[in-house]
Design a protein around this nucleic acid. Sequence first.
RNA 1: GGCGCCUUGGCCGAGUGGUUAGGCAGCGGCCUGCAAAGCCGUUUACAGCGGUUCGACUCCGCUAGGCGCCUCCA
Length: 429
Amino acid sequence: MRLYDTWSRSLVELPEPPGPVRMYFCGPTVYARAHIGNARPFVVGMWLRAWLRANGYDAELVHNITDINDKIYDAAPGASAELAARATQWYLDDTGDLGLGMPDHLPRATDSVPAIVAFIEELIAHGHAYESGGDVYFSVASHPEYGRLSGQRPDQVEQGEEPTALKRDPRDFALWKTNKPATEDTWWDSPWGRGRPGWHIECSVMAEQIYGPAFEIHGGGLDLVFPHHENEVAQSHALGHPFAQIWAHNGMLRFTGEKMSKSTGNVATIRDALEQWGSETILVFFLTASWRKPIDYSEETMRQAAARRDTLRNAFTLEPAPVEEERWRAFVVTLDDDFDTPAALAVLHEWATVGQLELLRRGLAIFGLESLAEREEAPPEVRDLAERRARARTERDFETSDRLRDELGALGWEMRDEPGGGYMLVRRA
RNA sequence: GGCGCCUUGGCCGAGUGGUUAGGCAGCGGCCUGCAAAGCCGUUUACAGCGGUUCGACUCCGCUAGGCGCCUCCA
């Protein structure tokens, strides 16, 4: 299997099974309900893990929770820890309801502070960082490789608006920030006084705490390439750690519906999407685009995803054809080639058309969509209505028949007539 | 100003130097009491302009439009 790697800007072949393939995908900063775009790295990470495991890999996924951050302080003055805890639970609930299971590890920044302090001390000892007024900064000039991941030219980087008096070089970034009592109600002790870690160092440390200094895949949104991942790789490489072999960056989700825009802050949360469309439609939606490309979230694109979901589910009401195991190969080819889910989806549709239901079920299961293969048993009152309608039809009392069909519809059930008076009851999503 | 990405038929989205994925929607038909589901058929696609080539949607250049990032947005 090969995957596109941002570092080398090329497709990189994964080692042969069983690997291992250790993956670290950047998770959310917990200060509010995560929006649907935040679900993409989670979904991609979980799908990759499932696919790798199905192919005999020893695959593992770490997804971190950033629970120390300015946004959290801003959102809940005086109660930031409580908000972070609550928002962490929201995220776990929301992603859990996607039905993909959970990553192997969900480390919190707040649990890693001693390790972060130790990592920073080592950077200082090696001359890659310096203390300044209670803050500690990474010295970009000490690391000539800086900028390689993102391709940014340090001399062209736009300067931030923050006063940089404490930095030796405006490009330097914070590893540790001294506590500001007026706005920050959490802090940790360190050799440089009370403070808190910077964002980038949290991820370097959490990844290495679990995997050690080298692992296979580091994932996250394309918007994190610079500065977040550039800084992570600088911190770890500066200490001679190999860190990630492959950098996998997922494309951004765009809100293109009329009612939504990120600038107005009016965006759908994962919870909103779950309530409006359900997990199956969300997963099919993510399947329709390559993981590296942008994907548009709108009423129209979601409606289409829902229609696709129905098409796939309807396949299971048909007579299955004898399993042709060799057809599985077509699916493997698509996913082993940079995890091309749109192509894989086309294969699933092909199987649906020709009645390869066992393969279809197995393929859907990779993406957490095995529920599409399940038929829900109708409750007694629904079966009773259906029987009455069947009788009315037999007696050619179509007025009663149509009325009963409407009643079934109101209960969320669809009655599909078959030749010879038989019928099938199908749950409408 | 810098780094990078994208532009395929009504919509979404693969793909290849010459044989045109897939889905949704639309239209016609079969089936049905009528539907639904399914099946069959169907709708002059590759932003524009140059160049390379026997031949480009596919390679190169330019233009236009869109998007991401530029120190704490997945």
